[in-house]
Simulated assay, not measured.
Amino acid sequence: MRVALYEPDIAGNVGTILRTAACFGVGVDLIEPMGFPWSDRGLRRAGMDYAAAGEVTRHADWGAFAAQLHGRLILATTRGATDLWDVRFAADDVLLFGSESAGVPDAVHARADIAVRVPMRAGFRSLNVAVSAGIVLAEALRQTR
């Protein structure tokens, strides 16, 4: 299982996701461009010192990522047609999360095998991407381990 981030905007969110993934032994794919510079100093500043402890792969763009994709692509999105609790995860799934400002484009939605949403109370728009990633990853790992 892997977590993939599509053109993330906020270094702090990426840092939180990298830390979560490293703690659970899950690799992370970063699909560029990102909204912040990727550097040793920048990583430390954003609290991403766990990047070295985890498996992080950077991809130049969506095409480069999609070309190497194996397993199902599970897109977490507010537009998801399937509730998280109704998904049956597999160990080789890739859990994809969009950028904080724009999500993912329609072409990426179309490529997803499953578009899943975290059920929330009516009237609430969305969760923070790092919180959402933690919830979806925890449920996926609960089911597959």
Rank of each mutant, 00 (worst) to 15 (best):
D49Y: 01
I31R: 06
A107F: 11
P8F: 10
G25I: 14
R41Y: 00
E55K: 15
E32K: 14
S39T: 15
I31Y: 05
I10H: 10
G80F: 01
W38Q: 11
G63M: 13
A76F: 11
A133V: 15
A102K: 12
Q68E: 12
G54K: 04
T78N: 06
A22N: 02
R2L: 10
A81M: 00
A133S: 15
W85S: 09
N13L: 12
V94D: 01
S99I: 05
F65R: 00
A11C: 12
D40A: 12
I114A: 04
A130C: 11
G25L: 14
R72P: 03
D40H: 11
D9L: 07
A64Y: 05
G35R: 14
A21D: 05
N13D: 09
F97V: 06
V26C: 11
H109K: 01
E32S: 00
R142K: 08
G12Y: 15
V56G: 04
S39A: 13
V136G: 05
T57R: 15
A102P: 01
R44P: 02
V56K: 07
A102N: 08
V26K: 09
V118R: 03
M48P: 00
I10P: 02
P119G: 06
P33V: 11
A76H: 09
G63Q: 15
N13K: 14
I31P: 03
V129G: 03
A46M: 09
Y6G: 00
G27P: 03
R121T: 12
A67V: 01
R117T: 03
L18C: 08
D83H: 04
R2N: 11
G47H: 12
S101V: 13
D29F: 07
V118N: 02
E55W: 09
S99V: 05
G47Q: 12
A52F: 04
A115K: 00
T78S: 11
I10N: 08
A64I: 05
T144L: 13
A21W: 04
C23E: 15
R72E: 01
G54I: 07
Q68S: 12
V14R: 06
T20R: 12
V28R: 06
A21G: 08
I74C: 02
L95K: 08
P33Q: 14
G47L: 14
A64K: 10
D83I: 02
T77Q: 02
T57N: 09
I135D: 08
R79Q: 10
D113L: 03
R44M: 10
G134A: 11
F65E: 01
G103W: 01
I74S: 02
V26Y: 11
T77L: 01
F124C: 10
A112E: 01
A76I: 05
L127S: 13
A90G: 14
H70N: 13
N13Q: 13
G98C: 07
S99K: 05
N128T: 00
I114G: 03
I31L: 12
A91V: 14
F124Y: 14
A51S: 09
R41K: 12
Y6V: 00
G15Y: 04
A53D: 08
W85F: 05
L69K: 01
I10S: 06
V116S: 03
V129S: 00
V136H: 04
D86R: 01
G123D: 04
